[in-house]
Nucleic acid binder design. Sequence first.
DNA 1: CTAATATATTTTCAACTCAAAAGTTTTCAA
DNA 2: TTGAAAACTTTTGAGTTGAAAATATATTAG
Lengths: 181, 181
Amino acid sequence: MALTENAAAERRKVRSDSGNNGEDPSQEVLTALRRIIRATDLHSKRLAREVGLTTPQTVVLQAVRDLGEVTSGQLSRHVSLSQGTVTTILDRLENRGLIERYRSASDRRVVHSRLTRQGRALLRKAPPLLHERFIEVFGDLPAARQRQIIKTLDEVAAMMGAAGLDAAPLLDSGASAKRER
Amino acid sequence: MALTENAAAERRKVRSDSGNNGEDPSQEVLTALRRIIRATDLHSKRLAREVGLTTPQTVVLQAVRDLGEVTSGQLSRHVSLSQGTVTTILDRLENRGLIERYRSASDRRVVHSRLTRQGRALLRKAPPLLHERFIEVFGDLPAARQRQIIKTLDEVAAMMGAAGLDAAPLLDSGASAKRER
DNA sequence: CTAATATATTTTCAACTCAAAAGTTTTCAA
DNA sequence: TTGAAAACTTTTGAGTTGAAAATATATTAG
């Protein structure tokens, strides 16, 4: 009996809900993410043109700098990219003489990477990995707001199932313990 | 005395030199974004395996459904992808018989796309564009928190320069001089 | 009417990305 | 010792991505 009225009421509620086009909230998340991803792509292409290094190349190069003699597996976990992806990026960096690769003497399966002099020099010119406007605007926010944003982004990453991937490498910084081989 | 003006300079000074231990907040944003982007990539690959449509393909297909007879330029703006990208995705969808393309009779430069029966059928199986876990967890959050998250993501997108990028840069010459036609 | 210009799309190019398969080397068990 | 299994890395295959060049068509100035 009251079914039709309930349906009508529900529709009315949905339609008048917010100023926007009655979008499902997940949809809005998706749209926002797509714009963020596109912005990072555009920025990366611009860096490639102006500085000669894309964002992923820079991230990997910095990781090589920070981790020292490092295997591609460690790199892969550190920068959140698959092993194959890291290999192709290292290929390019090696071809340009920015890094060197060599097999470990003790275990010839593993391949170490390290910066060359040129890689170190190029890295000093430090291409900014985020849009300048972002760095500027973000840096002007109150510290509390900055933390909120980071926390929200981490939450979203966790909700998307990205949590476990970097759990292991947390040891990287602390695992300087005793790893004798 | 110049202290207030040095705020910006101080911000920039926060670049750590050799091991970036200090965890500059921008760096944390970058890391979170990379994990989010990776999660969306992984999800897209999984969809491709299980449903036969990647995320971008689904997004474009849905846009064709929602916009009706649509040009690739309109699609490009609607889904936040470059024109060339949209073309390659439409190529794939067309090859599989999910859409049709045909030139406009009135202006033969423009190409319209529309769903085929099969495209419509496949869309009804609606592959979820976000990780199920995300949809579930996100949906359980209070509505106010959901809105906060969306607002934060939109803010981040805007800070990265992704806000009005679609239309504006196309009119680079003359800067919005209005001309009667 | 013709040439220049503008508009819409596609093509080309280089890079990124992951999964899965393939290739090496090491370790371990029988 | 000899296989088999495990551990690492690279290769392969398919798809996404944007910039810039190339095409095709339309519009406009002279």
